[in-house]
Nucleic acid binder design. Structure first.
Lengths: 240, 240
DNA sequence: CTCGTTTTCGCCCATCAGGCGAAAACAGGC
DNA sequence: GCCTGTTTTCGCCTGATGGGCGAAAACGAG
Protein backbone atom coordinates (compact mmCIF):
# COMPACT_ATOMS: atom_id res chain seq x y z
CA UNK A 1 0.00 0.00 0.00
CA UNK A 2 2.93 2.34 0.67
CA UNK A 3 4.48 3.71 -2.45
CA UNK A 4 8.02 2.56 -3.19
CA UNK A 5 10.31 4.19 -0.69
CA UNK A 6 12.21 7.01 -2.37
CA UNK A 7 15.95 7.34 -2.03
CA UNK A 8 16.86 8.14 1.55
CA UNK A 9 15.44 11.55 2.38
CA UNK A 10 16.55 13.80 5.18
CA UNK A 11 14.00 14.35 7.92
CA UNK A 12 13.68 17.46 10.01
CA UNK A 13 11.43 18.63 12.77
CA UNK A 14 9.67 21.96 12.96
CA UNK A 15 7.37 23.60 15.45
CA UNK A 16 4.38 25.76 14.49
CA UNK A 17 2.06 27.88 16.57
CA UNK A 18 -1.50 29.01 15.96
CA UNK A 19 -1.58 32.17 18.06
CA UNK A 20 -5.18 33.17 18.68
CA UNK A 21 -6.66 36.42 19.92
CA UNK A 22 -10.12 37.93 19.96
CA UNK A 23 -9.85 41.16 17.98
CA UNK A 24 -12.80 43.32 17.06
CA UNK A 25 -15.28 40.76 18.26
CA UNK A 26 -13.80 37.99 16.11
CA UNK A 27 -11.36 35.19 16.79
CA UNK A 28 -8.19 35.82 14.80
CA UNK A 29 -4.93 34.03 14.17
CA UNK A 30 -1.45 35.37 13.58
CA UNK A 31 0.14 34.43 10.23
CA UNK A 32 2.88 35.72 7.97
CA UNK A 33 2.93 35.90 4.20
CA UNK A 34 5.56 33.76 2.51
CA UNK A 35 7.77 35.56 0.01
CA UNK A 36 9.76 32.62 -1.32
CA UNK A 37 8.75 29.24 -2.73
CA UNK A 38 7.29 26.93 -1.79
CA UNK A 39 3.86 28.55 -1.58
CA UNK A 40 4.89 32.17 -2.19
CA UNK A 41 2.15 34.62 -1.29
CA UNK A 42 0.36 32.19 0.95
CA UNK A 43 -0.08 32.62 4.68
CA UNK A 44 1.90 30.51 7.11
CA UNK A 45 1.96 30.08 10.87
CA UNK A 46 4.99 31.29 12.81
CA UNK A 47 7.52 28.61 13.62
CA UNK A 48 10.61 26.94 12.29
CA UNK A 49 13.15 24.22 12.67
CA UNK A 50 13.79 22.55 15.99
CA UNK A 51 17.36 23.07 17.17
CA UNK A 52 19.55 20.33 18.52
CA UNK A 53 19.61 21.60 22.06
CA UNK A 54 15.99 22.56 22.67
CA UNK A 55 12.76 20.71 23.24
CA UNK A 56 9.65 21.60 21.26
CA UNK A 57 8.23 24.00 23.84
CA UNK A 58 11.47 25.90 24.19
CA UNK A 59 11.71 26.01 20.42
CA UNK A 60 8.25 27.36 19.81
CA UNK A 61 8.80 30.05 22.41
CA UNK A 62 12.04 31.06 20.76
CA UNK A 63 10.49 31.21 17.32
CA UNK A 64 7.41 33.05 18.51
CA UNK A 65 9.64 35.70 20.05
CA UNK A 66 10.57 36.69 16.52
CA UNK A 67 6.95 37.56 15.73
CA UNK A 68 5.43 38.84 18.96
CA UNK A 69 6.43 39.85 22.44
CA UNK A 70 6.31 36.57 24.30
CA UNK A 71 5.19 38.24 27.52
CA UNK A 72 1.91 38.83 25.75
CA UNK A 73 1.21 35.14 25.16
CA UNK A 74 -0.81 34.10 28.19
CA UNK A 75 -1.03 30.41 27.39
CA UNK A 76 0.74 27.95 25.15
CA UNK A 77 0.04 24.26 24.79
CA UNK A 78 0.86 21.40 22.51
CA UNK A 79 -1.78 20.46 19.96
CA UNK A 80 -0.60 17.51 17.93
CA UNK A 81 1.87 16.25 15.39
CA UNK A 82 1.39 16.74 11.66
CA UNK A 83 3.47 14.21 9.82
CA UNK A 84 2.14 13.52 6.35
CA UNK A 85 5.28 12.70 4.34
CA UNK A 86 4.21 15.17 1.66
CA UNK A 87 2.89 17.92 3.90
CA UNK A 88 5.79 20.16 2.89
CA UNK A 89 7.45 19.84 -0.51
CA UNK A 90 11.22 19.90 -0.71
CA UNK A 91 14.29 17.78 -0.36
CA UNK A 92 13.93 17.36 3.35
CA UNK A 93 10.81 16.02 4.96
CA UNK A 94 9.40 18.07 7.86
CA UNK A 95 7.47 16.67 10.76
CA UNK A 96 5.68 19.42 12.66
CA UNK A 97 4.63 19.73 16.29
CA UNK A 98 1.76 22.21 16.42
CA UNK A 99 0.94 24.46 19.36
CA UNK A 100 -1.89 26.77 20.22
CA UNK A 101 -1.09 30.12 21.82
CA UNK A 102 -3.50 32.63 23.32
CA UNK A 103 -3.13 36.40 23.59
CA UNK A 104 -5.39 38.48 25.86
CA UNK A 105 -7.60 40.94 24.05
CA UNK A 106 -6.22 44.07 25.72
CA UNK A 107 -2.82 43.95 24.02
CA UNK A 108 -2.03 44.77 20.41
CA UNK A 109 1.34 43.18 19.82
CA UNK A 110 3.74 44.81 17.41
CA UNK A 111 4.26 42.43 14.50
CA UNK A 112 6.69 42.40 11.55
CA UNK A 113 5.64 43.84 8.20
CA UNK A 114 4.94 40.45 6.64
CA UNK A 115 2.74 39.38 9.55
CA UNK A 116 -0.95 40.03 10.12
CA UNK A 117 -4.04 38.83 11.96
CA UNK A 118 -6.64 36.80 10.06
CA UNK A 119 -10.19 36.00 11.10
CA UNK A 120 -10.61 32.31 11.84
CA UNK A 121 -13.51 31.09 9.71
CA UNK A 122 -16.31 28.88 11.02
CA UNK A 123 -16.06 25.11 10.50
CA UNK A 124 -17.39 24.71 6.94
CA UNK A 125 -14.88 27.17 5.50
CA UNK A 126 -11.13 26.64 5.73
CA UNK A 127 -10.04 28.11 9.05
CA UNK A 128 -7.35 30.18 7.33
CA UNK A 129 -7.81 31.59 3.79
CA UNK A 130 -4.95 31.03 1.32
CA UNK A 131 -3.05 28.87 3.78
CA UNK A 132 0.44 27.56 3.18
CA UNK A 133 0.93 23.79 3.47
CA UNK A 134 -1.41 22.19 6.00
CA UNK A 135 -1.59 25.23 8.21
CA UNK A 136 -5.35 25.63 7.80
CA UNK A 137 -5.84 22.25 9.48
CA UNK A 138 -3.63 23.32 12.35
CA UNK A 139 -5.68 26.48 12.87
CA UNK A 140 -8.85 24.42 12.79
CA UNK A 141 -7.44 22.13 15.47
CA UNK A 142 -6.45 25.13 17.56
CA UNK A 143 -9.92 26.66 17.31
CA UNK A 144 -11.49 23.38 18.36
CA UNK A 145 -9.14 22.94 21.29
CA UNK A 146 -9.89 26.45 22.50
CA UNK A 147 -13.61 25.89 22.12
CA UNK A 148 -13.52 22.71 24.17
CA UNK A 149 -11.26 23.95 26.93
CA UNK A 150 -13.20 27.19 27.43
CA UNK A 151 -16.09 25.18 28.79
CA UNK A 152 -14.33 22.96 31.30
CA UNK A 153 -11.28 24.99 32.31
CA UNK A 154 -10.52 28.57 33.32
CA UNK A 155 -8.84 29.14 29.96
CA UNK A 156 -10.77 32.38 29.57
CA UNK A 157 -8.01 34.06 31.58
CA UNK A 158 -5.79 33.78 28.51
CA UNK A 159 -8.26 35.68 26.33
CA UNK A 160 -9.23 38.36 28.82
CA UNK A 161 -7.41 41.37 30.26
CA UNK A 162 -6.49 41.33 33.95
CA UNK A 163 -9.74 43.08 34.82
CA UNK A 164 -12.95 43.09 32.83
CA UNK A 165 -16.69 43.46 33.03
CA UNK A 166 -19.01 40.52 32.54
CA UNK A 167 -20.25 42.08 29.29
CA UNK A 168 -16.73 42.26 27.94
CA UNK A 169 -16.07 38.69 28.97
CA UNK A 170 -19.31 37.61 27.35
CA UNK A 171 -18.18 39.07 24.04
CA UNK A 172 -14.83 37.31 24.27
CA UNK A 173 -16.48 33.97 24.91
CA UNK A 174 -19.03 34.51 22.15
CA UNK A 175 -16.29 35.28 19.65
CA UNK A 176 -14.16 32.32 20.66
CA UNK A 177 -17.04 29.87 20.87
CA UNK A 178 -18.76 31.09 17.73
CA UNK A 179 -22.20 31.33 19.25
CA UNK A 180 -24.07 33.75 21.53
CA UNK A 181 -23.37 33.43 25.25
CA UNK A 182 -25.67 34.56 28.04
CA UNK A 183 -23.96 36.98 30.42
CA UNK A 184 -26.08 35.77 33.31
CA UNK A 185 -25.18 32.16 32.74
CA UNK A 186 -21.53 32.84 32.04
CA UNK A 187 -21.07 34.68 35.30
CA UNK A 188 -22.94 32.04 37.26
CA UNK A 189 -20.99 29.14 35.81
CA UNK A 190 -17.61 30.74 36.29
CA UNK A 191 -18.45 32.06 39.74
CA UNK A 192 -19.75 28.71 40.96
CA UNK A 193 -16.50 27.14 39.95
CA UNK A 194 -14.60 29.76 41.91
CA UNK A 195 -12.84 30.99 38.79
CA UNK A 196 -14.14 34.56 38.99
CA UNK A 197 -13.64 37.14 41.72
CA UNK A 198 -14.94 40.74 41.89
CA UNK A 199 -12.23 43.36 42.23
CA UNK A 200 -14.56 45.78 43.99
CA UNK A 201 -14.03 48.48 41.38
CA UNK A 202 -16.55 49.41 38.72
CA UNK A 203 -16.13 50.46 35.09
CA UNK A 204 -17.53 53.83 33.96
CA UNK A 205 -20.77 53.51 31.97
CA UNK A 206 -20.71 53.86 28.19
CA UNK A 207 -21.82 56.97 26.27
CA UNK A 208 -25.44 55.87 26.44
CA UNK A 209 -25.39 55.70 30.20
CA UNK A 210 -26.51 52.62 32.03
CA UNK A 211 -25.57 51.08 35.31
CA UNK A 212 -21.80 50.94 35.82
CA UNK A 213 -20.49 47.41 35.48
CA UNK A 214 -18.55 45.69 38.23
CA UNK A 215 -15.01 44.63 37.40
CA UNK A 216 -13.90 41.03 37.78
CA UNK A 217 -10.71 39.08 37.43
CA UNK A 218 -9.88 35.40 37.14
CA UNK A 219 -8.80 33.95 40.47
CA UNK A 220 -6.11 31.98 38.70
CA UNK A 221 -4.03 32.94 35.70
CA UNK A 222 -2.71 29.44 35.14
CA UNK A 223 -4.67 26.62 33.56
CA UNK A 224 -7.02 24.87 35.97
CA UNK A 225 -9.32 22.04 34.98
CA UNK A 226 -12.75 22.03 36.53
CA UNK A 227 -12.98 18.94 38.69
CA UNK A 228 -16.72 18.83 38.16
CA UNK A 229 -16.30 18.00 34.50
CA UNK A 230 -15.25 14.51 35.48
CA UNK A 231 -18.37 12.47 35.74
CA UNK A 232 -18.31 9.18 37.67
CA UNK A 233 -16.33 10.87 40.40
CA UNK A 234 -14.80 8.93 43.26
CA UNK A 235 -17.20 8.69 46.23
CA UNK A 236 -15.02 10.73 48.58
CA UNK A 237 -15.14 13.72 46.26
CA UNK A 238 -18.26 14.94 47.99
CA UNK A 239 -16.51 17.10 50.58
CA UNK A 240 -16.41 20.86 50.19
CA UNK B 1 20.83 29.28 29.35
CA UNK B 2 21.23 26.58 26.71
CA UNK B 3 24.43 24.66 27.02
CA UNK B 4 26.92 25.11 24.18
CA UNK B 5 25.50 23.44 21.12
CA UNK B 6 27.38 20.21 20.48
CA UNK B 7 28.76 19.38 17.07
CA UNK B 8 25.90 18.87 14.65
CA UNK B 9 23.92 15.89 15.83
CA UNK B 10 21.61 13.79 13.71
CA UNK B 11 17.94 13.99 14.68
CA UNK B 12 15.48 11.19 14.23
CA UNK B 13 11.83 10.68 14.97
CA UNK B 14 10.31 7.71 16.72
CA UNK B 15 6.80 6.71 17.68
CA UNK B 16 5.88 4.99 20.93
CA UNK B 17 2.65 3.48 22.15
CA UNK B 18 1.33 2.90 25.63
CA UNK B 19 -1.07 0.01 24.97
CA UNK B 20 -3.47 -0.33 27.89
CA UNK B 21 -5.79 -3.14 28.86
CA UNK B 22 -7.69 -4.08 31.98
CA UNK B 23 -6.38 -7.50 33.00
CA UNK B 24 -7.32 -9.25 36.19
CA UNK B 25 -9.11 -6.20 37.52
CA UNK B 26 -6.07 -3.96 37.06
CA UNK B 27 -5.04 -1.53 34.36
CA UNK B 28 -1.94 -2.84 32.62
CA UNK B 29 0.42 -1.67 29.94
CA UNK B 30 2.36 -3.60 27.33
CA UNK B 31 6.16 -3.28 27.48
CA UNK B 32 9.20 -5.21 26.32
CA UNK B 33 12.46 -5.78 28.12
CA UNK B 34 15.51 -4.29 26.46
CA UNK B 35 18.43 -6.65 25.90
CA UNK B 36 21.00 -4.20 24.56
CA UNK B 37 22.31 -0.87 25.80
CA UNK B 38 21.18 1.73 26.39
CA UNK B 39 19.14 0.72 29.42
CA UNK B 40 19.54 -3.06 29.18
CA UNK B 41 17.10 -4.95 31.33
CA UNK B 42 14.70 -2.05 31.59
CA UNK B 43 11.19 -2.04 30.19
CA UNK B 44 10.33 -0.01 27.10
CA UNK B 45 7.18 0.78 25.19
CA UNK B 46 6.70 -0.71 21.73
CA UNK B 47 7.63 1.61 18.89
CA UNK B 48 10.52 2.60 16.71
CA UNK B 49 11.83 4.90 14.05
CA UNK B 50 9.51 6.76 11.72
CA UNK B 51 10.06 5.77 8.09
CA UNK B 52 10.35 8.24 5.27
CA UNK B 53 7.08 7.32 3.62
CA UNK B 54 4.72 7.04 6.58
CA UNK B 55 3.03 9.44 8.93
CA UNK B 56 3.16 8.87 12.67
CA UNK B 57 -0.14 7.01 12.88
CA UNK B 58 0.76 4.64 10.07
CA UNK B 59 4.11 4.13 11.70
CA UNK B 60 2.82 3.30 15.14
CA UNK B 61 0.36 0.83 13.64
CA UNK B 62 3.15 -0.86 11.73
CA UNK B 63 5.39 -1.10 14.76
CA UNK B 64 2.61 -2.27 17.03
CA UNK B 65 1.88 -5.08 14.59
CA UNK B 66 5.21 -6.57 15.57
CA UNK B 67 4.04 -6.90 19.17
CA UNK B 68 0.32 -7.59 19.04
CA UNK B 69 -2.41 -8.39 16.57
CA UNK B 70 -3.52 -4.95 15.46
CA UNK B 71 -7.12 -6.07 15.03
CA UNK B 72 -7.23 -6.30 18.80
CA UNK B 73 -6.42 -2.62 19.35
CA UNK B 74 -9.82 -0.97 19.54
CA UNK B 75 -8.61 2.61 19.79
CA UNK B 76 -5.44 4.48 19.12
CA UNK B 77 -4.83 8.18 19.56
CA UNK B 78 -2.00 10.64 19.71
CA UNK B 79 -0.87 11.73 23.14
CA UNK B 80 1.93 14.23 22.82
CA UNK B 81 5.50 14.82 21.79
CA UNK B 82 8.43 14.06 24.06
CA UNK B 83 11.41 16.02 22.90
CA UNK B 84 13.92 16.57 25.66
CA UNK B 85 17.27 16.67 23.83
CA UNK B 86 18.67 14.15 26.29
CA UNK B 87 15.68 11.89 26.61
CA UNK B 88 17.54 9.11 24.81
CA UNK B 89 21.32 8.81 24.98
CA UNK B 90 23.23 8.11 21.80
CA UNK B 91 24.71 9.70 18.76
CA UNK B 92 21.36 10.58 17.22
CA UNK B 93 18.76 12.57 19.04
CA UNK B 94 15.26 11.08 19.05
CA UNK B 95 12.05 13.05 19.20
CA UNK B 96 9.11 10.83 20.10
CA UNK B 97 5.43 11.05 19.27
CA UNK B 98 3.58 9.09 21.95
CA UNK B 99 0.27 7.30 21.44
CA UNK B 100 -2.18 5.58 23.71
CA UNK B 101 -3.77 2.33 22.53
CA UNK B 102 -6.61 0.41 24.12
CA UNK B 103 -7.29 -3.33 23.99
CA UNK B 104 -10.68 -4.75 25.03
CA UNK B 105 -10.57 -7.02 28.05
CA UNK B 106 -11.88 -10.13 26.33
CA UNK B 107 -8.79 -10.74 24.20
CA UNK B 108 -5.43 -12.04 25.36
CA UNK B 109 -3.05 -11.10 22.57
CA UNK B 110 -0.12 -13.33 21.81
CA UNK B 111 3.05 -11.38 22.58
CA UNK B 112 6.76 -12.04 21.89
CA UNK B 113 8.93 -13.62 24.55
CA UNK B 114 10.52 -10.32 25.61
CA UNK B 115 7.14 -8.63 26.01
CA UNK B 116 4.81 -8.62 29.00
CA UNK B 117 1.98 -6.74 30.68
CA UNK B 118 2.73 -4.54 33.67
CA UNK B 119 0.30 -3.09 36.19
CA UNK B 120 0.08 0.68 35.85
CA UNK B 121 0.78 2.12 39.28
CA UNK B 122 -1.29 4.87 40.89
CA UNK B 123 -0.11 8.50 40.58
CA UNK B 124 2.41 8.74 43.42
CA UNK B 125 4.43 5.76 42.16
CA UNK B 126 6.08 5.72 38.76
CA UNK B 127 3.48 4.43 36.33
CA UNK B 128 5.88 1.80 35.00
CA UNK B 129 8.50 0.13 37.25
CA UNK B 130 12.07 -0.03 35.92
CA UNK B 131 11.21 2.05 32.89
CA UNK B 132 13.56 2.72 30.01
CA UNK B 133 14.18 6.37 29.08
CA UNK B 134 11.14 8.58 29.75
CA UNK B 135 8.63 5.84 29.13
CA UNK B 136 7.16 6.00 32.62
CA UNK B 137 6.04 9.57 31.93
CA UNK B 138 4.40 8.44 28.71
CA UNK B 139 2.47 5.73 30.53
CA UNK B 140 1.39 8.27 33.15
CA UNK B 141 0.11 10.55 30.40
CA UNK B 142 -1.74 7.66 28.81
CA UNK B 143 -3.41 6.70 32.07
CA UNK B 144 -4.48 10.28 32.62
CA UNK B 145 -5.87 10.62 29.12
CA UNK B 146 -7.86 7.43 29.52
CA UNK B 147 -9.18 8.53 32.87
CA UNK B 148 -10.38 11.86 31.51
CA UNK B 149 -11.93 10.55 28.32
CA UNK B 150 -13.81 7.75 30.03
CA UNK B 151 -16.00 10.34 31.71
CA UNK B 152 -16.97 12.49 28.74
CA UNK B 153 -16.76 10.11 25.79
CA UNK B 154 -17.88 6.58 24.96
CA UNK B 155 -14.28 5.39 25.20
CA UNK B 156 -15.41 2.48 27.36
CA UNK B 157 -16.13 0.61 24.14
CA UNK B 158 -12.37 0.20 23.68
CA UNK B 159 -11.96 -1.51 27.04
CA UNK B 160 -15.04 -3.71 26.92
CA UNK B 161 -15.94 -6.81 24.90
CA UNK B 162 -18.71 -6.50 22.29
CA UNK B 163 -21.28 -7.63 24.84
CA UNK B 164 -21.06 -7.33 28.59
CA UNK B 165 -23.04 -7.09 31.80
CA UNK B 166 -23.19 -3.89 33.79
CA UNK B 167 -21.23 -5.54 36.58
CA UNK B 168 -18.42 -6.44 34.20
CA UNK B 169 -18.41 -2.92 32.81
CA UNK B 170 -18.34 -1.52 36.30
CA UNK B 171 -15.19 -3.49 37.08
CA UNK B 172 -13.52 -2.26 33.91
CA UNK B 173 -14.29 1.36 34.73
CA UNK B 174 -13.19 0.94 38.33
CA UNK B 175 -9.86 -0.52 37.25
CA UNK B 176 -9.25 2.14 34.64
CA UNK B 177 -10.36 5.05 36.82
CA UNK B 178 -8.64 3.79 39.94
CA UNK B 179 -11.63 4.25 42.21
CA UNK B 180 -14.87 2.40 42.93
CA UNK B 181 -17.72 2.99 40.50
CA UNK B 182 -21.40 2.55 41.22
CA UNK B 183 -23.07 0.15 38.81
CA UNK B 184 -26.36 1.98 39.12
CA UNK B 185 -24.85 5.31 38.30
CA UNK B 186 -22.65 4.00 35.52
CA UNK B 187 -25.57 2.47 33.71
CA UNK B 188 -27.70 5.56 34.14
CA UNK B 189 -25.05 7.96 32.91
CA UNK B 190 -24.15 5.89 29.87
CA UNK B 191 -27.76 5.12 29.05
CA UNK B 192 -28.87 8.72 29.32
CA UNK B 193 -26.20 9.65 26.83
CA UNK B 194 -27.45 7.00 24.47
CA UNK B 195 -24.15 5.16 24.55
CA UNK B 196 -25.53 1.89 25.89
CA UNK B 197 -28.10 -0.45 24.35
CA UNK B 198 -29.46 -3.73 25.72
CA UNK B 199 -28.94 -6.71 23.42
CA UNK B 200 -31.96 -8.53 24.82
CA UNK B 201 -29.90 -11.55 25.84
CA UNK B 202 -28.93 -12.36 29.40
CA UNK B 203 -25.75 -13.83 30.88
CA UNK B 204 -26.00 -17.04 32.95
CA UNK B 205 -25.69 -16.45 36.69
CA UNK B 206 -22.46 -17.21 38.51
CA UNK B 207 -21.84 -20.30 40.65
CA UNK B 208 -23.50 -18.68 43.64
CA UNK B 209 -26.72 -18.09 41.73
CA UNK B 210 -28.32 -14.70 41.60
CA UNK B 211 -30.44 -12.97 39.05
CA UNK B 212 -29.09 -13.37 35.52
CA UNK B 213 -27.60 -10.12 34.24
CA UNK B 214 -28.79 -8.44 31.06
CA UNK B 215 -26.24 -8.04 28.28
CA UNK B 216 -25.45 -4.64 26.82
CA UNK B 217 -23.34 -3.27 24.04
CA UNK B 218 -22.07 0.19 23.14
CA UNK B 219 -24.21 1.78 20.46
CA UNK B 220 -21.06 3.10 18.81
CA UNK B 221 -17.65 1.51 18.57
CA UNK B 222 -15.95 4.67 17.37
CA UNK B 223 -15.02 7.60 19.59
CA UNK B 224 -17.92 9.93 20.31
CA UNK B 225 -17.65 12.96 22.53
CA UNK B 226 -20.61 13.67 24.77
CA UNK B 227 -22.10 16.96 23.66
CA UNK B 228 -23.36 17.55 27.18
CA UNK B 229 -19.84 17.93 28.51
CA UNK B 230 -19.65 21.28 26.78
CA UNK B 231 -21.04 23.81 29.15
CA UNK B 232 -22.18 27.19 27.82
CA UNK B 233 -23.92 25.45 24.96
CA UNK B 234 -25.34 27.37 22.02
CA UNK B 235 -29.01 28.28 22.52
CA UNK B 236 -30.27 26.09 19.69
CA UNK B 237 -28.80 22.99 21.31
CA UNK B 238 -31.98 22.54 23.23
CA UNK B 239 -33.70 20.34 20.66
CA UNK B 240 -33.83 16.58 21.12
C1' DC C 1 -40.28 -23.94 49.78
C1' DT C 2 -36.95 -21.11 51.96
C1' DC C 3 -32.59 -18.81 52.04
C1' DG C 4 -28.69 -16.36 50.20
C1' DT C 5 -27.02 -14.01 46.14
C1' DT C 6 -26.93 -10.92 42.35
C1' DT C 7 -29.11 -7.81 39.44
C1' DT C 8 -32.45 -4.37 38.34
C1' DC C 9 -35.53 -0.76 39.07
C1' DG C 10 -37.98 3.03 41.30
C1' DC C 11 -37.78 6.86 44.34
C1' DC C 12 -35.59 10.73 46.41
C1' DC C 13 -32.20 14.41 46.77
C1' DA C 14 -28.62 17.91 45.66
C1' DT C 15 -26.36 20.35 42.17
C1' DC C 16 -26.07 22.79 38.16
C1' DA C 17 -27.05 24.93 33.56
C1' DG C 18 -30.26 27.88 31.55
C1' DG C 19 -34.06 31.41 31.01
C1' DC C 20 -36.71 35.32 32.34
C1' DG C 21 -38.06 39.46 34.32
C1' DA C 22 -37.76 42.84 37.89
C1' DA C 23 -34.89 45.98 40.25
C1' DA C 24 -30.69 48.80 40.50
C1' DA C 25 -27.71 52.38 38.82
C1' DC C 26 -26.26 55.46 35.53
C1' DA C 27 -26.67 59.63 31.49
C1' DG C 28 -29.25 62.93 29.20
C1' DG C 29 -33.13 65.91 28.16
C1' DC C 30 -37.17 68.45 29.57
C1' DG D 1 -35.78 67.92 40.00
C1' DC D 2 -38.08 64.41 37.26
C1' DC D 3 -38.80 61.38 33.59
C1' DT D 4 -36.95 58.30 29.98
C1' DG D 5 -33.86 55.15 27.94
C1' DT D 6 -29.93 52.12 28.70
C1' DT D 7 -27.10 48.78 30.82
C1' DT D 8 -26.10 45.84 34.50
C1' DT D 9 -27.26 42.89 38.28
C1' DC D 10 -29.92 39.93 41.00
C1' DG D 11 -33.58 36.71 42.39
C1' DC D 12 -36.70 33.14 41.17
C1' DC D 13 -38.12 29.27 38.56
C1' DT D 14 -37.41 25.17 35.68
C1' DG D 15 -35.43 21.07 33.73
C1' DA D 16 -31.63 17.98 33.26
C1' DT D 17 -28.28 15.26 35.47
C1' DG D 18 -25.27 12.92 38.87
C1' DG D 19 -25.53 10.29 42.92
C1' DG D 20 -27.45 7.29 46.84
C1' DC D 21 -30.44 3.93 48.79
C1' DG D 22 -33.51 0.28 49.38
C1' DA D 23 -37.07 -2.67 47.64
C1' DA D 24 -38.25 -5.98 44.29
C1' DA D 25 -37.02 -9.37 40.77
C1' DA D 26 -34.79 -13.53 39.30
C1' DC D 27 -31.82 -17.08 39.92
C1' DG D 28 -29.19 -21.63 42.46
C1' DA D 29 -28.81 -24.57 46.36
C1' DG D 30 -30.28 -27.03 50.26
Amino acid sequence: MARPSPAARATGHEVLAAVLQVRGGRLQVLAWQRALPPHPGRWALPGGRLRDDEDVETSVRRQLAEKVDLREVAHLEQLSVFSDPDRVPGRTRLVATAFVGLVPSHVDPAVPADTAWHAVAAPPEPALPEPAFDHAAIVADARERLRAKLSYTNLGFALAPPEFTISALRELYAAALGHPVSATNLQRVLARRDLLAPTGAVAPPGPAGGRPAALFRFTDRALRVTDAFAVLRPPEAREG
